[in-house]
Every structure is written in C-alpha cells, then in structure tokens.
C-alpha cells in the first residue's frame, strides 16, 4: 500500500519535531551542567582532575557522535539495563555536549584576564566566590555566542539518534518515506524543519558575537 505524501503526512513529520526539540533540550541542559563541571575541572589547580577532564574531552571530540550513541545504547544492554532509545540517546548526547561545552567554556574562563583572578584573590575572595562573582559572570558573556553555535550543532546531531530507533524528526521522516516512497518530498520537509529550528539560533549567535565584540573594544 503506497499512500501519497499529503497534508497529513506533512503534519506527522512536523509533530515529530517536538521530540527533536525535547532531546536537544535534555542534552543541552545535561551538557550545560556536565560542561560546567568539565570546564572547572579543566582549569583546576588539581592535576589529576585536569588530566581526567582532558581525557574525557579528547575521547568525545575524537570519536563520531554515532559511535558514542552505539556504545551507550549497546553498552547499557551489556550492563544489564533494558535497551531504551530515549535513555541511551539522552545519556550519549549529554556526555557529548558536556565534552564540547566543557572545552568551549574552558576557553571562555581562560579568556578572562588573569588580573581579575589576582585582584579577587588579593581581596581575600576564595575559590568559590572568585568563580561565582568574578570569573564566571565575565566568562558567560564571552561564552554566549559560541554556546548558541554549539546548540545548533547539537540539534542537527540529534538526527543520529534515529539510527538507534529514537523516533524524532529524521526517524519519523524515514517511517513516512517507507509508506509514501517520495523521499525528496519527505526529506526535503525534514531538512526544512531542521533549518527552521537552527537558522534563528545561528542568527542569534551572530548578533551576540557582534554585540560582544563591540562591547569589548574600547
């Protein structure tokens, strides 16, 4: 039974975007927390922590996201956990985002002039307060643009979760294509939806970058 690609099929694909958004949101939130920890470990005074963070970053930057998804998905099974695409995709993308955001934010923390840390230290502020009130607020301003840029990568990256059977935008496209056999229409629609999600974010990142560079030149 081949059915035509019509309004209904279009809506089914559009509705699947919510799962792409949900998975992106989970990965971004988890990656935000993980990334902060990775970044702090990466600039820590404690050497083993630094080495651990570097190792984590290298592994996730040096392997394809698809392999990371596979390893978590099948690895869960080996450790006796039920195979669940939701959980596997969330964990894999969270780890992935933690590594990348950690490295991006490390750069932002290090971009804060060393005099800021020295002045805070000289005033008697200890590590937590130094980070919280002096370093991180300044690093955050630098971080906004590259972070939004990475979010775009992450949204596009969720499409790989289709391969482990997570029904998001891409997977829904495959399912509809199996029924309609009009791949150009189907994947054209899928691509257009990704574009609609990502393009405004790219614009936002660009705008923030311009604003930041303007505010730092004096």
């Amino acid at each position: 039974m081949i059915r035509p690609f019509g309004w209904n099929e279009f809506l089914i694909i559009v509705m699947a975007a919510q799962w792409t958004i949900a998975l992106s949101a989970i990965a971004f939130a988890g990656g935000g927390i993980g990334g902060l920890l990775v970044a702090l470990a990466r600039v820590s005074d404690i050497r083993p922590l630094r080495i651990l963070a570097v190792g984590f970053i290298r592994v996730f930057q040096g392997t394809p996201l698809l392999m990371q998804l596979f390893l978590v998905f099948f690895g869960m099974n080996i450790f006796g956990l039920a195979i669940n695409p939701w959980v596997a995709a969330s964990i894999a993308l969270t780890l992935h985002a933690s590594a990348f955001l950690g490295e991006i934010w490390r750069g932002c923390v290090e971009a804060v002039p060393p005099g800021q840390r020295e002045a805070a230290t000289a005033l008697g502020l200890k590590y937590v307060n130094r980070m919280r009130y002096i370093i991180l607020p300044q690093a955050t301003r630098i971080a906004v643009a590259p972070t939004v840029g990475f979010l775009v990568q992450l949204i596009k990256g969720t499409s790989l979760a289709a391969i482990i059977g997570f029904t998001e935008l891409t997977r829904q496209g495959q399912i509809i294509n199996n029924a309609t056999f009009s791949p150009f229409m189907v994947f054209g629609t899928v691509a257009a939806i990704y574009f609609v999600l990502c393009w405004p974010l790219s614009l936002l990142a660009r705008r923030m970058e311009v604003r930041f560079s303007r505010s730092t030149q004096r």
């Binding site: 002039p113 005099g115 800021q116 020295e118 002045a119 805070a120 005033l123 008697g124 502020l125 200890k126 307060n129 009130y133 002096i134 607020p137 300044q138 301003r141």
Partner: peptide, 24 residues
C-alpha cells in the same frame, strides 16, 4: 593596587568596593 587597575568590569564602582567586605 595593580598597574592595570583590575577593577571588575561587570560591577559598578560601589559593587567593586562592597563585594569582598560582604563575602569575605
């Protein structure tokens, strides 16, 4: 006091002066 001032640029003058007394 440093050569390059090292004031905290994201805080007002008053906040620069009150942060350490409050937190430390």
């Amino acid at each position: 006091v440093f050569q390059s001032f090292n004031l905290f640029p994201h805080m007002t003058v008053l906040e620069n002066c009150t942060l350490a007394p409050i937190k430390v």
